[in-house]
């Protein structure tokens, strides 16, 4: 969900923007080492992909709809640092070019949909993969689990921001229950789609999945010394 202006007070919005700016700076620094100048065209096309992914809406109760977030998917596909840049561009352009999400809430939206979900999914993915056998099935299962929890983490970040500076009179407990119950549904959708998407990519171009690169056997180009007649 893209937050509008005025839902959270200005102080918390600015605080979130400062944290988001810090995370983006880290992303900019670290992604330089991994991708060099390749970052721009590749990350740009990954951004288009995440943008298209986010457009998958599905109806949730009471006339509202949830959309997929793609933070976990991005971090598994291209790694956390490039994912931060990708999500930053996607969420910022949604606010500036598509008028989706308030301008004063941009920092909050960047923090919730981008940084929180990327950080949570990166840590969780690495942790779970340590415990499980390094197979295709466990990569898919872990991706789905991570996607589910990252959506709940984003929702949790929203509830936390609300408790700090929410301009509404609902008490925290009821906001927590309603926001979480909606996001459990969104999370299930996100988990299924993320897991299946990762599975589909692993089946054909496993080398493109950043999170799986370490675990799957490398298919090196085999050059034989002589041709057997």
């Amino acid at each position: 969900m893209h937050m509008p202006d005025g839902l959270i007070n200005a102080q918390v919005s600015i605080g979130a923007a400062v944290i988001a700016a810090g995370a983006i700076t880290v992303g900019l620094k670290k992604s330089k080492g991994t991708l060099d100048s390749q970052t721009a065209p590749l990350a740009g096309l990954v951004a288009v992909f995440i943008f298209a992914f986010q457009m998958m809406n599905f109806p949730v109760a009471a006339g509202t709809s949830g959309h997929l977030m793609g933070g976990a998917l991005a971090s598994i596909l291209v790694g956390p640092y490039v994912a931060i840049l990708v999500m930053t561009v996607v969420v910022s352009l949604q606010a500036l070019v598509f008028a989706d999400g308030g301008l004063s809430a941009l920092g909050l939206n960047l923090l919730n949909m981008g940084i929180v979900s990327i950080v949570v999914s990166t840590i969780l993915f690495a942790g779970l993969m340590k415990l499980l056998p390094k197979t295709r099935i466990s990569i898919i299962g872990v991706s789905a689990t991570v996607a589910f929890i990252s959506v709940l983490a984003s929702a949790g970040a929203f509830v936390f921001e609300y408790s700090l500076g929410g301009n509404a009179t609902y008490n925290i407990a009821s906001v927590l229950i309603s926001v979480m119950s909606v996001h459990v549904l969104i999370g299930i959708g996100e988990a299924i789609i993320t897991g299946l998407t990762i599975g589909a990519i692993l089946a054909t171009r496993a080398d493109l999945v950043y999170g799986a690169r370490k675990f799957l056997p490398a298919h090196n180009l085999l050059i034989k010394e002589s041709v057997v007649a």
């Binding site: 065209p41 990954v46 288009v48 992909f49 789609i193 299946l196 998407t197 990519i201």
Partner: peptide, 16 residues
């Protein structure tokens, strides 16, 4: 999801 996967591969390769 297979379409999404194929879309990612196409997008990535186009990026390359």
């Amino acid at each position: 999801a297979h379409s999404a996967g194929a879309l990612f591969i196409r997008s990535y390769e186009r990026g390359e």
